[in-house]
């Protein structure tokens, strides 16, 4: 089992927190177009899960995916450059916030279609294990995804073929504005249990708890066990999407938001560090992000003449659209 490393875990939640805050500033300044889905408040889940994985394990993220990509080890500077659509970005400016991917660190992509990535990750882990690699996978999805048929099909395939995939449901209480109670019949864990998968509910605000529960599941899976599900209860501190900063949507009472924000994964994990350690991490994260912002803003924009580069791995050049 991976050992606890409180400083490193704190660094990950802090990095994601400050990355998101810097990204929101860049949305406001107009440097990031299209906005983002902030991961603020949910940092403990990506950080805790990825702390229990090996470098060669595989993950998939969601439209709210910056945390997953960063926690698995992607370079924050190239991640930020991707959000700005620059050629130095992880995806050379072709993916953006919702499709950031870094296959080199085992991130098969944030995926903007809710519930779609589970089956993709199941196939990838199955293929790697067929080659003799003892990797496992973790696929993140929100509470909205548990009503997508293709995710439930993926539960069945993974369980049937005993593919070691950890299905990580980040239950932040809302699918955009739809509350869980208005959308989910039965329970989230009950869906997993129906396919013979163990399911656990964990406190998603505590990075250490998420790491511990994940590490135990990963040990079972790596030793030959089948897939498992964890439902990490969490709260989204900010908007569904930054467009809400301009258009106020009335679906969460201020008291509820205040209550949700009172359990902050950065504070919970930070409280486990001495003041000096914490200050050192904070300063290091600030300098990493300052350099990332500088790198991203200074990076060149892609050449429109190459807009459809990489459309085909074969190198096929598509016909142009002009007359």
């Amino acid at each position: 089992m991976t050992r606890s490393d409180p400083v490193r875990l704190y660094r990950t939640v802090r990095l994601i927190r400050r990355f998101e805050e810097r990204a929101i500033e860049l949305v406001r300044s107009g440097a990031i177009v299209g906005g983002i889905h902030p991961y603020l408040g949910q940092e403990g889940i990506a950080a805790g899960v990825c702390a229990a994985l090996r470098a060669d394990d595989l993950v998939t993220g969601t439209h709210r995916g910056h945390g997953h990509v960063l926690a698995k080890g992607a370079d924050p500077a190239r991640m930020l450059a991707e959000l700005l659509g620059r050629v130095t970005g992880l995806n050379r400016g072709r993916g953006g916030s919702m499709h950031a991917a870094d296959l080199g660190v085992g991130v098969l992509g944030a995926n903007a279609i809710v519930g779609a990535a589970g089956a993709i990750l199941t196939g990838a882990v199955w293929a790697r294990r067929r080659r003799g690699d003892d990797v496992v996978g973790a696929t993140f999805f929100g509470d909205g995804a548990v009503n997508e048929g293709m995710l439930l099909e993926a539960f069945n395939l993974a369980a049937l073929w005993r593919v070691p995939v950890l299905f990580v449901c980040e239950n932040n209480g809302y699918a955009t504005t739809m509350p869980v109670d208005g959308a989910v019949a039965g329970t989230i864990g009950g869906r997993a249990e129906a396919f013979g998968m163990p399911a656990a509910v964990v406190d998603g605000q505590d990075p250490e708890t998420v790491r511990e529960v994940t590490a135990a599941a990963v040990d079972r899976m790596r030793a030959g066990g089948g897939p498992e599900l964890i439902e990490a209860r969490t709260y989204r501190f900010d908007a569904h999407h930054t467009f809400e900063h301009a258009v106020r949507l009335d679906y969460r009472a201020p008291e509820e938001v205040a209550r949700g924000r009172s359990r902050d994964p950065v504070e919970i994990q930070g409280g486990r560090l001495g003041d000096a350690d914490r200050a050192a991490v904070d300063a290091e994260v600030e300098s990493v992000l300052a350099a990332a912002v500088e790198f991203a803003l200074a990076s060149p924009e892609p050449d429109p003449a190459g807009a459809l580069e990489h459309l085909y791995a074969s190198g096929l050049v598509a016909r142009t659209g002009g007359g």
């Binding site: 595989l58 296959l103 098969l108 779609a116 089956a119 993709i120 990750l121 199941t122 196939g123 990838a124 882990v125 199955w126 293929a127 790697r128 067929r130 080659r131 048929g149 293709m150 099909e153 993926a154 069945n156 395939l157 049937l160």
Partner: peptide
Amino acid sequence: DTPLSEQAFTSFATGAALAGLRP
């Protein structure tokens, strides 16, 4: 042989291809 889960096994193939196989 797959269960009748066309959407899942189609994306399963995508994942297997990403991991180096040719489904």
